[in-house]
Amino acid sequence: MPNPMHIGVLEDDADQQDFIEQCLIAVGHRVTQFMRASELRRAIQTQAFDLFIIDWRLPDASGMDVTAHLRQHDGWKGPILFVTASQEEEDIVLALDSGADDFLAKPLRPRELSARVNALARRAGLQAQATDKEQFGAYSLDGGQREVQLAGERVTLTEREFRLVSLFFSHPGELLSRAHLLEVVWGIKGDVSTRTVDTHISRLRRKLVLDGSHGVRLRSIYQHGYRLEAQAMSH
């Protein structure tokens, strides 16, 4: 059985929602359902997802617009499976050009759906990451659950915050420039304002108490970037 993933499903038809959820739960995945694009956009700020399944036609947006927004504005790099009632080649090309990784035509078939989801997960490296559990003093990172615990307590992070902390903990002691963080975590290259990086780092420091009191400090290096440093814990 594949490693369990947290999958967001954006589908406004309740019967289709239930069908997709049952298919995915049957093979061990966790599912959060959304009927409107605005609900998904709010959720991505507070929850970490591994994969999205997005329907073309929605009450408040088109699935292609949602996909493009996730890629360009939310920095979402995970797999997106597009679901459409259309078999037209032009529509499928449009969906893939908008940022979808794969598509499925309705009516959906349970075994094909779970096989496509697992194939996307393998391609994205999620199956390999899912067993990655790393310990750093009081901090524990779980790549499968996409979560961080501090002294045994789960800390709620957004997808982007999880990617940031994973990057720092996999490169301890290394100076990571703002430009590098923007490119790896946001998918943005070039001369872009780095204020957004600083805002996220500040929030991450606060949430995970990365001030050295738990043996790890996320230090700002003036005009260069950030470095995660081990600290002697004060008693």
Rank of each mutant, 00 (worst) to 15 (best):
K189L: 10
H69W: 11
Q145I: 05
T194N: 14
G78A: 01
G63R: 05
D18K: 09
M35Q: 11
L157D: 08
D91I: 09
V83E: 00
Q223F: 00
F103S: 06
V93W: 02
A37W: 03
S86G: 05
V27R: 09
A68L: 06
T46W: 06
T158W: 06
A179V: 15
R122Y: 07
P59C: 01
R178V: 13
A124T: 06
D74A: 12
V185P: 00
A179P: 05
L164N: 02
Y226S: 10
E39H: 04
A115S: 10
S86P: 10
T158K: 07
R36P: 09
R109D: 13
E161L: 10
R154V: 13
R111Q: 14
S234P: 15
F19D: 08
L94K: 14
K189N: 13
N118R: 09
G190N: 07
R203I: 14
G75C: 10
T84M: 03
E147P: 03
L58W: 05
D74N: 07
A232C: 14
R154K: 13
S234C: 14
D55V: 00
L51M: 05
R178D: 15
R160T: 05
A138L: 13
G99S: 03
R42M: 10
V66W: 03
A105M: 14
G144V: 10
E11Y: 08
E174V: 09
G75Y: 06
F162D: 06
D198G: 12
V148M: 07
Q129H: 13
H29R: 02
F169R: 07
L157T: 06
I25Y: 08
E21V: 06
T46H: 12
H73F: 08
V93Q: 03
Q17H: 07
L210K: 05
S98G: 08
V155L: 09
D65M: 07
G8Q: 05
L164Y: 14
D211Q: 05
A119H: 07
G63D: 04
S140H: 10
G190H: 07
D15S: 13
L40F: 01
K77V: 06
L96H: 02
S98R: 04
P79T: 00
G225Y: 05
L94T: 11
T158S: 15
V185M: 02
E174I: 09
Y222D: 10
V27I: 09
G143K: 02
P110E: 06
E229N: 10
R160H: 06
V197P: 13
L51H: 02
T199Y: 14
Y139D: 15
F82H: 06
L181T: 05
D211H: 02
D60A: 07
P172Y: 05
D74C: 12
R217H: 15
L182I: 05
H224M: 13
L218C: 08
I92C: 04
L157K: 10
G212Q: 04
Q45W: 02
T84H: 03
L120C: 04
I54Y: 01
G144E: 11
F168N: 15
V155Y: 03
S98W: 00
V192H: 15
D191E: 11
T199D: 14
L24A: 04
D60H: 08
H235W: 14
P79M: 03
L96A: 02
R206I: 12
T196D: 11
Q22W: 09
L58K: 01
Q33P: 04
T194W: 11
P79D: 01
A61E: 08
T194I: 10
E11H: 08
L96D: 01
L210Y: 05
